[in-house]
Each structure stands twice: as structure tokens, then as C-alpha cells.
Design a protein around this nucleic acid. Structure first.
Lengths: 210, 210
DNA sequence: ACCTGAACACCGTTCAAGT
DNA sequence: ACCTGAACACCGTTCAAGT
């Protein structure tokens, strides 16, 4: 990556290389490590070079979000109940965010889900409307579900914030239920994801029959 | 706020003033405007002065999150079904985030919900365990619900990212369901919050009877 | 105790210039 | 076309010094 190179010569850079390097940098050193200068260095190039491929840092962050989404969420295969298809979609997003925890905060700032991937969305809407939801309700459900999944990942901060919660319990106070709840360890991300997904799907079912 | 003041004299600053100024600054100019130097200027003080009240910028951000939470979520009153109490909790958080959209990204980076407010949490657990949930499930439910609410707010970015979604629809493509879904305008934050809250509560109910 | 000034090692971004 | 160097207006944070 840090090969010296004759000045003024093409570096042979392209947009995807930049995005992959950016994601790799974030995965390795956290999102605070992502700066135009640092990323350029990682690519063996001067910072200004990057401005030939992205308008500015904001656009770079948008592109990173898109890149991670495109990598984890794929088009639903035709078969399976709407419940399974929606759950698969949620699980794919969940896995994508698990794989790149450092990019989660970028989702928090950037336009979010599916400026691209409209095709995937259309397919999802098809399956949901076939099940009896209106197009508008279906779209709201998909967006809402994605936002719930994202929400579970947000605020996990520097990994073991969860440990902190446990030890931050005021020593003196009388909090029997909190202590009982934490006896088998702090409920983690996976547990929250599971309970949310189950509840949402079963809640949407109730909407349909009600 | 910008009164001149004799150098070396006490500014009469305190932590709450700093936090309120910080939230006001974020509300007025967005979270990118929050810098130690800028906040200090707003308080008529030198940047370094702030370091007497907060360890560093990260600690300041944590404190802002706590401050907004404390302001919006209050202890549940004893009566009402667990469904109503949980919904009230979600609505309070929702309103708090609506009131301070600029702080939403801070929740995305910081340890999140309830380093303080453990009392509120204990009360919520009491109501949920009375209804038949185990303490651990109850805690997971509360955290998961809060994360879902937060998730709806995340990625709203600079307000009208939603408009962008509508106009970003590829002109040529055949997306009848997307277009039908968007015919009455893009489903907004409020609509997503509503559908999620309803689905979660009804989904949790199903867990209980199942 | 509380506040400041100068300094250090960083940022994103512009612009004109190199090959 | 693609890359660079210098410059501008910022950052967070340290440290020693003022009152």
C-alpha cells in the first residue's frame, strides 16, 4: 500500500479501491481514524488526490454507507412467507452492521437506507402487498424495521459499554430487579435483535388480521 | 452571553450552564457547530476553561446525552397497564429526540441509555415483571424498545433527506409499488414511530401468552 | 480555584501549479 | 487527466503561567 511512486504518475486509483480502503481503515482503527489525509496515506497518495473521486468527506461517508449496504443486503429470493423474507432482510442488515461496527455512526449522520437498492425495495414491497399490506404501509414497515435494526447497533460505542452499565450500578441503592436482570450477564446486542425481530413480525401480523 | 469580563475573574460558570449552552448551540446550528472553542466563545470564556468542568470533548458529549434524557424521560406513574407504561416511555424518548434532532448523532457514538435514570428503569422493570416477564426479558425489552425509537430518528440527517428519497427514484425504471407507496408523500418519522410502537407492544403481548 | 496564552499535532478544503 | 505543495481557517488538548 505504501509503495513509493514517481510523482505525477497515475496511481491507478479508482472509487471502489478508495471505499474498500476506507472501510478497512474504519474496521481496523475505528471511525475516528478516518480522515482524508490518513486515508490518502493508506493508499500511498496525497490527500488532495481523493478529491478527484469524491466531492468531499461527506460524500465519501455516504458512499461508504452505500458500499456496506450493497455488500450485505441482496435481493430477496421469490419464495418464503413475507415473514421469512422480512426477517431475512433484517438479518442481512444486522450481519452487515456486525461486520463493520465502525461504520454504524456513519449511518447515523447520513441519508440512510437505500438511495440505491431500490430494486430490492420494490421486490420487498411486492411480497408484502401480496400478503395484503398497502404499498404505503409496506414501505413504512420496511423502513421502520431497518431503523429498528440499526438502532440496536447504535450506541454500542467502544465495544464494552455494556460492561460499564453493569458496573455503574450505584452500589448503595436498592435495585433488586436490575440486579436480577443482570445476574446472568448484560443482555447483549444479539438478544435485543432477536426480541425485536420476533416482536415486530408478530406485531405486523396482528395489524394484518386486526 | 458575550459580555466582556475582567481577565482572571471567575466567570461563574457551572456544569449545567455549559450543558445547556451546548444543547442550545447544537439546536441552533447543528452538531457540527459544537467545538470546544466555539462553545467557550458562546459562554464568553476561553476554550481551556471548559476543561475544568469536563474531562474532554467525549465526556462533554456523554453529559449532553444524559442531560437530554433526564429532561425528557421521567419516572412512570404507578397506574396504567404495562403496555401503556412502556408506550409512555417510548413516547417520552421520542419527544426528547424530536426536540433536539441535532443531538441524535451523539446517541449514536455514546454509551447510550441510562447510566443515570436507573431508578426509572427499576420502576419499569417492576411493572413488567408484575405482568409476567422475567427481569432479564423485561430489561431486554426496555433497551430494545429504546433502541428502536432512537433508530427511527437516526439518519434523518439534514432534515429533508426524505424528500431526496422521493426524487432520487430512477426516472426510467419500472417501480410501480414504490411509486404507489410514495403517492401520498413519503412516510415520515411519525408514521414509522407509530407502526413500530404498535407492533412492538403487540409483539411483546404475544410473547407473554405464547 | 479558576482562568488564560502559546504551542503542538492534527483537521477539511481551495487554488495554482506541475507532469 | 491525474496528482501535488503550499496555504487558510479551523480542530482537541498539553502545559506553564497568571490572578
Amino acid at each position: 500500500m505504501n509503495q513509493p511512486r514517481i510523482q505525477g504518475r497515475h496511481a491507478g486509483l479508482n472509487r471502489d479501491q478508495i471505499l474498500e480502503a476506507a472501510v478497512a481503515l474504519i474496521d481496523a482503527e475505528g471511525r475516528r481514524a478516518l480522515s482524508m489525509r490518513r486515508l490518502a496515506q493508506e493508499l500511498g497518495v496525497e490527500a488532495m488526490t481523493l478529491y478527484h473521486y469524491v466531492r468531499n468527506k461527506g460524500a465519501l461517508e455516504d458512499a461508504i454507507v452505500e458500499h456496506v449496504l450493497a455488500e450485505s443486503v441482496e435481493e430477496p429470493d421469490g419464495d418464503g412467507s413475507w415473514q421469512e423474507v422480512l426477517a431475512d432482510y433484517a438479518r442481512a442488515l444486522h450481519r452487515g452492521l456486525l461486520a463493520h461496527p465502525g461504520v454504524v455512526p456513519l449511518f447515523a449522520t447520513r441519508p440512510a437506507l437505500t438511495p440505491r437498492g431500490v430494486r430490492t425495495l420494490e421486490d420487498l414491497l411486492g411480497i408484502l402487498t401480496d400478503a395484503g399490506f398497502t404499498p404505503r404501509t409496506a414501505l413504512t414497515m420496511v423502513h421502520a424495521t431497518a431503523a429498528c435494526v440499526l438502532g440496536q447497533h447504535v450506541g454500542r460505542g467502544d465495544e464494552d459499554a455494556e460492561e460499564a452499565t453493569a458496573s455503574a450500578l450505584p452500589a448503595g441503592e436498592d435495585l433488586p430487579l436490575m440486579r436480577a436482570a443482570l445476574a446472568d450477564g448484560v443482555p447483549g446486542l444479539e438478544e435485543r435483535f432477536q426480541i425485536v425481530l420476533t416482536a415486530l413480525v408478530s406485531g405486523y401480523e396482528a395489524t394484518l388480521s386486526g
